[in-house]
Computed example of a mutant assay.
Amino acid sequence: MSSVSTRIGIITSEGTAKVKEGDLSAGWTSVHDNVSQLVLDGTRIGVVTRERTAKVKEGGLSAGWTSVHDNVDQLVLSGSRIGVVTSEGTARVKEGSLSASWTDEYNGIGWLALGGARIGVVSNTGTALVKEGDLSAGWTTVHDSAYRLVLAGSRIGVLTVTKTALVKEGGLSAGWTSVADSVQQLVLAGSRIGVLTERGTAKVKEGGLSAGWSDVQEDVVLLALAGTRIGIITNNVMAKVKVKVKEGDVSAAWTNESENSAMVVTLPSGTY
Score class of each variant (00 low, 15 high):
residue 3 S to E: 13
residue 3 S to N: 12
residue 8 I to W: 03
residue 13 S to G: 14
residue 15 G to W: 06
residue 18 K to M: 12
residue 20 K to G: 01
residue 21 E to S: 11
residue 23 D to V: 12
residue 29 T to A: 14
residue 30 S to G: 05
residue 31 V to N: 00
residue 33 D to F: 10
residue 34 N to D: 15
residue 37 Q to Y: 05
residue 38 L to N: 04
residue 38 L to E: 04
residue 40 L to F: 04
residue 41 D to A: 06
residue 49 T to W: 06
residue 53 T to E: 13
residue 54 A to C: 10
residue 65 W to A: 12
residue 66 T to Y: 03
residue 67 S to T: 15
residue 69 H to L: 11
residue 70 D to E: 13
residue 78 S to N: 15
residue 80 S to D: 15
residue 82 I to V: 14
residue 85 V to C: 02
residue 90 T to P: 08
residue 95 E to W: 02
residue 98 L to N: 08
residue 98 L to Q: 02
residue 103 T to Q: 06
residue 109 I to L: 00
residue 118 R to G: 01
residue 121 V to G: 02
residue 126 G to D: 07
residue 135 L to N: 10
residue 138 G to I: 10
residue 138 G to Y: 11
residue 140 T to R: 09
residue 146 A to G: 10
residue 146 A to H: 02
residue 156 I to K: 00
residue 162 T to Y: 08
residue 165 A to D: 10
residue 169 E to K: 09
residue 174 A to F: 03
residue 176 W to A: 03
residue 179 V to A: 02
residue 180 A to E: 10
residue 181 D to F: 08
residue 181 D to V: 10
residue 189 A to V: 09
residue 190 G to S: 08
residue 197 T to K: 08
residue 199 R to E: 15
residue 201 T to W: 02
residue 201 T to P: 01
residue 202 A to I: 04
residue 211 A to E: 05
residue 214 S to Q: 11
residue 215 D to C: 01
residue 216 V to T: 06
residue 217 Q to R: 15
residue 217 Q to K: 06
residue 228 T to D: 14
residue 231 G to K: 06
residue 232 I to T: 05
residue 241 V to R: 11
residue 242 K to Q: 13
residue 247 E to T: 11
residue 250 V to K: 03
residue 251 S to H: 09
residue 254 W to V: 00
residue 260 N to E: 15
residue 262 A to K: 01
residue 267 L to H: 09
residue 270 G to F: 06
